[in-house]
């Protein structure tokens, strides 16, 4: 039983890594600009916070942005897994947040996350 649980966990981790490796950052840029660009920019706080550097950042800590108390007080650190959960259903990850925008397709989320990871490194 324990072996099965380990195998399932390993498959999940490997699956996430494989998804991240397969993600298309160039397509993610197009998706980011069309889906996220209404509220976000990489380098400026607008309706939502600036996104450059989001990878590895603790939620609610982008300089100069006024966050909801829910996000500000959360201990979420943005990585592949948490960003995927956030884009799937932000309210489920951090109840009381203000974004509420969802990206329904796993492939779209993976590509957007790949783009954010790429830009965070620059």
């Amino acid at each position: 039983m324990r072996g099965l649980a380990f195998a399932a966990a390993a498959a999940l981790v490997l699956g996430t890594a494989a998804d991240a490796a397969a993600a298309d950052a160039a397509r993610g840029q197009d998706l980011y600009e069309s889906r996220c660009g209404g509220c976000h920019s990489l380098d400026a706080n607008r309706v939502g916070p600036a996104h450059r550097g989001v990878f590895g950042r603790t939620a609610g800590t982008a300089p100069g942005f006024s966050y909801s108390p829910a996000v500000k007080n959360s201990s979420v650190v943005w990585n592949d897994r948490t960003l995927d959960a956030w884009l799937t259903n932000p309210q489920a990850l951090i109840p009381g947040q203000r974004m509420n925008f969802r990206v329904a397709t796993a492939e779209d989320r993976a590509d957007i996350i790949a783009y954010l990871r790429q830009q965070s490194a620059r």
């Binding site: 600009e33 069309s34 889906r35 996220c36 660009g37 209404g38 509220c39 509420n100 925008f101 969802r102 990206v103």
Partner: peptide, 11 residues
Amino acid sequence: ERGAANAYIGV
């Protein structure tokens, strides 16, 4: 405008 349309759809 494209971003706004997609934002309204996405919420």
